[in-house]
Design a protein around this nucleic acid. Sequence first.
DNA 1: TATCAATCGTTAAGC
DNA 2: ACGATTGATA
Length: 859
Amino acid sequence: MTTPLNAESAPATARRSATPIILDASDRAANGYAAQGHAGTGGARQSPLLDGLNPQQKEAVEYRGQALLIIAGAGSGKTSVLTRRVASLLETRDAWPSQILAITFTNKAAAEMRERVHAILGQGSDGMWISTFHSSCVRILRREAEKIGLSSTFSIYDSADTKVTLKRIIKGLDADTYGFTPGSAGAKISKLKNELADADSYARNANMSDPQEVMFVEIFRQYSARLRAASALDFDDLIGETVYLFRAFPKVAALYRRRFRHLLVDEYQDTNHAQYALVHELTRPVTAELAQEMEDDGVHVRNLRDMTGAIPGASLTVVGDSDQSIYAFRGADTRNISGFERDYPGAKVILLEQNYRSTQNILSAANAVIGHNFDRTDKKLWSAGGDGEKIVGFTAYSGHDEAQFVSDEIQVLHAAGMAYRDMAVFYRTNAQTRALEEILVRSATPYRVVGGTKFYERAEIKDALAYLIAVANPVDELALRRILNTPKRGIGPATETGLSSFADDNELTFRQAMRNSASLGLGPKVTGAILKLAELLDAAALMLVPTSVTDDGVPVGAANDGAANVSEVLEFLLNGSGLLAVLRSSRDPQDEVRAENIEELVAQTKDFNKENPDGGLVDFLTQVSLVAAADDLDDASGTVSLMTLHTAKGLEYEAVFLTGVEEGLLPHQMSANEPGGPAEERRLFYVGITRARKRLYLSLAMTRAQFGDINVAMPSRYLQEIPAELIDWKQSPGMANSRGGTQPRALNARRDGGFGGFGNSLNSLSDGFGGRSRGSNSAKEAGLPPGKPKTEWANKITGTVRDNGSLELAAGDRIRHHDFGEGRVNQVTGEGTKRIAHVQFDSMGAKKLLIKIAPIEKI
DNA sequence: TATCAATCGTTAAGC
DNA sequence: ACGATTGATA
C-alpha cells in the first residue's frame, strides 16, 4: 500500500521527464535466435522497446485502444511482449505507473513480470500493481473491509482451514449420512463461489424437494456464517467479495476505476467467472454523475473525464491461449477468452504464432496433437530455427524400466554437455515420482521435485501461525481451537466443545468464552490452562499497540511507533506457550525437524521485518497466506526438475522427458467421463510437448504399478496423432507382428504368434491399436475425429503389447523368461489379466511376473 | 489420553 | 503401495 489511492492525480497527458528505457540482456535474449532480421521497419526512429520483435509483437506492444486480446501461442514471447507493453505505456506517457494494474495467476509469474519491468524501467516502476488476482483483492479488501462488515484484520482461510470447518459442520449436521465429505462439499461450494453464487442465491434455484440439496444448502449456509463470525474469507471469497464490494458500493468502485486506467491480465484462458467479473467491474466507465460527485469530494478526476463528463472505462489487455487451458477442472472458463470480442466490442486481436523456443519437429508434433481438438480457432506454431532432432520414443516394460531409460538418457545428455538444470521430467500424476526418484537416486543424478509439500502447510508451522492469527484476529475461532491444546495443556475435545457451545449460548466469541471459562465449572487445572492461554494472547495483542498514542488511541508518528514487530510477537508467543520447547525436548526425532521449521519461521519473520520496516502482523500473515511457495524460486540449482504436467506450464527446458504417455494416465482415467475431459488432457499433453526447446522424449510403460497392483497399460491415443516421421522409436509399442515393427527387448520372447485369446473380451483388438483396455472398452472413448478411419492412421505404431493370452501356469511349472532365464513357478495369484506368477529363477532369484504380458514361455 | 490396528481413498493445483 | 485418518483398546 505504497500509493494512497487519492493522493496523486494522474493526468493522462502527464508531463514528466521521460524515463530512459534500457533493455537488459536477459530480456533481449528472450527472443533468442530469431531476434535478428526484424531490425527497424524503416522510417522514424523506433523505441528500443521494439528491438528484436516481430511485427505482431510490435503491434501488441504499441496498440492503444480500449481492448486488446493477444492470442499468444506457446513460446511466442508473451512475457516479453507484456512487459514491454507496460514499459511502452509509460514511455509514450499514456500512463503513470500507478495507473497500471497487471494481474497474473501465480506469484512466480508476478515476480517475473515485476523483475523484468523493473529491469527496463528501474525506479520508474514504483507504484505499479503487478500482482496476482488474490493479492490485488486482499489489498483492496483490507482497505475497504468495514464496508462489507469485515475486520480489516480478517483471516484468510486456505483449503485446509476450509476442510476443518466443513468437517465440523458436517459432523454437527450428520450430513455424512447424505454422502457429504468435507472435500465434496468444499469442492461444490468453491465451484459455486467461482460462479459468484452464495448460499441464498443457490437455494433459490435448488431443488428443495431433494433432501440432499436441502442438506447442502444448510452446509453452505453454516459455512458462510462461520467464516463471517470469524471475520474470515476463503480464497474464493477474496475474488467474490471484491466483486460484491464494487457492485454494492459504486463510489468505492469508482475510485478504483479512476485509479487503474490500464489493466493487463495474463493467462486469461484460466480465469473463472468471478475473475472475469472482477476484470469487467474494474474496466467499466464511471458515470458522469459519479465523476461529478468525486470531483465535488475533492478527488482529482477532471483530466480523465470525457466530453459527457464520464470517465471512460480503463483499457484492457488480456493475453492467453485457449490451447493451454488446463484448469477447467478448477473453474477456468475458456469462454472468457473466446467471447472477448463480444464482451469488449471493437477489441483488437493479435495472434502470436511464431515460436522462439522449440525446434520445428517439436512444434509440428504439438500442432498435430492439438489439431485433434475441435472447436478451437486454428493456430499453427512455427519456428525459424530448423527441424532439430527427432522426438525420441521409448516403450518400457514397467514404470521402473521407463525410469531407467529416463535416467540413462539424462546421463547421455549430461555427458554430451547439457546441464542438469536444463532437463526436466514430466508426469501426469504425483505417484509416478516414486519409480523415477528411486532410479535417479541410484544413478546419483541430482534432481528435485518441483511442487509438493509446502513449508507453510506443515502442521507445526500452521500451529505457530495460528497463534499469530489469534492475536491479529481475535474472533477467529478456528485459529483459537487449533492452538487450544497445542502444545498439550490437558484441554480435551470435550472441553473444546463445551467452550464452543458456551460461546454460542451466551453470544460470546470463542475468545471471550475462554476469558470467562471460570464460570463453566470445569476442573481448576483445565480452567487455569485456558485462562493462561487467553492471557498470553491478550498480552501479545498489547505488544502490538503503539506506545505513543493520543488520548483517542490514534498513533503518533510512525504507524508502528513503539509497537513490537512480528518476530518479537512470535517469539513471545512461542516462549509463553512452550510450543517450541516441547518440540525440542521431545524424543521423537521428527520433532527435531519440526522445531527447526519453527525456527525457520522465526527467521522469516525477521527477514520480513527487515524488508518491510512498516509491515505489521497482518501484512506478514497476508504474505504467508498468499505467497505460499517462495522456496521453489531457487531454480538456479544444477538439478534435473521433476514435476507434473500442470506444474510445467509456463516453463521451458532444453530437454523434456514426458513420461507415462499411456491410456488411463494421459488421458487420465478420471477424465474419461467428464465432458471436455479428454480434450483438456490433450491440451495438457500439448503443454508438455511445447515446454521442450531442443530435445523431447516420449515414454510409456506396458505395465504400471498403481494402487498396489500391477496394471497393463496401452499407448496413449495421443501418440497416434503425432506423424510417425517425427518420432524415432528406440523401442516402439509395436512389437514383432504381422504388420512389422521392431522387436523390443524383453518383449519378443515368443515369436510363434503369441496372440491367443481373442475370444476374451479383455483381449480383443477392438480399435486397431492392439489395445487391451481395462474392463470397459476404450474404442468409443478414443475421441477420434470423425471421418478419420482408424485404419488410415499415419503412424504405424500398432500399440500391440505382448500378450500371452490364455497361458495357464500352475505351481510347479518350469518356465523360461527372456531376461531372467529359467525358473520354477511357486505360486499363481490374482485373477484374469492380473494373474501373477511367483517364480523362483535358477540364477536370478525370486520374481513376480504378470503372466499376461511377461516375456515368458512354458517349458 | 496415547497408541495401534483397521480402513479408506487415492488427477491435476493456483491463491 | 502408501499415507492419512478413524476407531478401538489399554
